[in-house]
Amino acid sequence: MTSKLMSTLAVATFAAAVSTIAAAPSATAEPCPDVQVIFARGTTEPAGLGSVGGPFVEDLRAKVAPQSVVGTAVDYPATNDFGNSVPAGTSAARALIESTAASCPNTKMVLGGFSQGAAVVQLAANEATAQSGDHVAASALFGAPRSSFSSMLASGQALPSLAPQYAANAIDQCNVGDPICWEGGMDMGAHVSYVQSGKVAQAADFVAARV
């Protein structure tokens, strides 16, 4: 093979490679959704959106279609060690709220939480920057710690509540007899039946009207 032919082949091979690289699609970030649900699961539930958060996101998605809805789970321990678990969850949820507001300013945020997770998102919302809070369209709480029993579990620490700027667009669901939120309640079965009681679907209706 002559040097001229080898040179021609080399140039052709290089040109083909450049053409292939140019034609390959570039990696792009996922587009911002219309609605971002930030949800904190309940105590001892496996990592993820949890038994309440998953159905809530699905119900909301169906109600606001064709808007896009993405559910993001707060990554925190969700253990019975409330003194460490709640602060860790609060920090993680606040970071999600602030990063979503910064990176997706046109996205409507929905905050949600079940049981301990409800306490987490309330504290996180109250601690988030005012600019981030402006992007929160609605909040949905389920079995939020409200009772004397919850206060006892929290070793007498003050139980959180949503700051006034969030309260008007928040729904606070409590099943009758749920000892975590219903004063004097003694039915732990009520605490784990928010889907069955229809309160998850009700909350999705409430939030859908605000996004």
Score class of each variant (00 low, 15 high):
Thr2Met: 01
Thr2Phe: 01
Thr2His: 11
Ser3Leu: 15
Ser3Arg: 15
Leu5Pro: 00
Ser7Gln: 14
Ser7Pro: 00
Ala10Cys: 12
Ala12Glu: 02
Ala15Asn: 02
Ala15Gln: 02
Ala15Ile: 12
Ala16Asn: 10
Val18Ala: 12
Ser19Tyr: 07
Ser19Thr: 15
Thr20Pro: 00
Ala22Phe: 06
Pro25His: 09
Ser26Trp: 01
Ala27Gln: 13
Thr28Glu: 15
Ala29Tyr: 09
Glu30Met: 13
Glu30Asp: 14
Pro33Phe: 04
Asp34Leu: 07
Val35Gly: 09
Gln36Ile: 01
Gln36Phe: 10
Val37Glu: 03
Val37Pro: 05
Ile38Arg: 02
Phe39Lys: 03
Glu45Lys: 08
Glu45Leu: 06
Gly48His: 11
Gly48Trp: 11
Gly48Lys: 11
Gly48Val: 12
Gly50Leu: 09
Ser51Arg: 13
Pro55Val: 13
Pro55Cys: 11
Val57Arg: 03
Glu58Gln: 15
Leu60Gly: 10
Leu60His: 06
Ala65His: 10
Ala65Leu: 02
Pro66Gly: 09
Pro66Asn: 07
Gly71Trp: 03
Gly71Pro: 10
Ala73Thr: 08
Asp75Glu: 14
Tyr76Gly: 05
Ala78Gly: 06
Ala78Phe: 01
Ala78Asp: 03
Asn80Phe: 14
Pro87Lys: 07
Pro87Val: 06
Pro87Cys: 08
Ser91Ile: 12
Ala92Cys: 04
Ala93Met: 10
Ala93Asp: 02
Ala95Asn: 12
Leu96Gly: 01
Ile97Gly: 01
Ser99Gln: 15
Thr100Pro: 01
Ala102Gln: 14
Cys104Met: 06
Pro105Val: 08
Pro105Leu: 08
Thr107Arg: 07
Lys108Cys: 06
Met109Phe: 00
Gly112Ala: 09
Gly112Asn: 04
Gly113Tyr: 03
Phe114Ser: 09
Gly117Asn: 08
Ala119Gly: 13
Ala119Thr: 11
Val120Asn: 10
Gln122Asn: 07
Leu123Ala: 09
Ala125Asp: 11
Asn126Ile: 05
Asn126Pro: 08
Glu127Gly: 15
Glu127Thr: 11
Ala128Trp: 00
Gly133Val: 11
Ser139Pro: 00
Leu141Met: 13
Pro145Gly: 06
Ser147Trp: 04
Ser147Cys: 10
Phe149Asn: 09
Ser151Phe: 00
Leu153Cys: 05
Leu153Lys: 06
Ala154Ser: 14
Ser155Tyr: 05
Ser155Gly: 00
Ala158Glu: 14
Leu159Trp: 05
Pro160Asp: 05
Ser161Arg: 11
Leu162Cys: 07
Leu162Phe: 11
Ala163Leu: 11
Tyr166Val: 00
Tyr166Asn: 00
Tyr166Ala: 03
Ala167Trp: 01
Ala168Leu: 07
Asn169His: 14
Ile171Trp: 02
Asp172Ala: 04
Gln173Pro: 01
Val176Leu: 14
Gly177Ala: 09
Pro179Gln: 08
Ile180Ala: 12
Ile180Tyr: 02
Cys181Trp: 01
Cys181Pro: 06
Glu183Ile: 05
Gly184His: 03
Gly185Thr: 02
Gly185Arg: 04
Met188Phe: 15
Gly189Phe: 01
Gly189Lys: 08
Gly189Asn: 13
Ser193His: 03
Ser193Tyr: 01
Tyr194Trp: 10
Ser197Thr: 12
Ser197His: 11
Gly198Ala: 10
Gly198Ser: 09
Val200Asn: 09
Gln202Ala: 15
Gln202Glu: 15
Gln202Trp: 00
Ala204Pro: 07
Phe206Asn: 01
Phe206Trp: 03
Phe206Gln: 01
Ala208Val: 07
Ala208Glu: 03
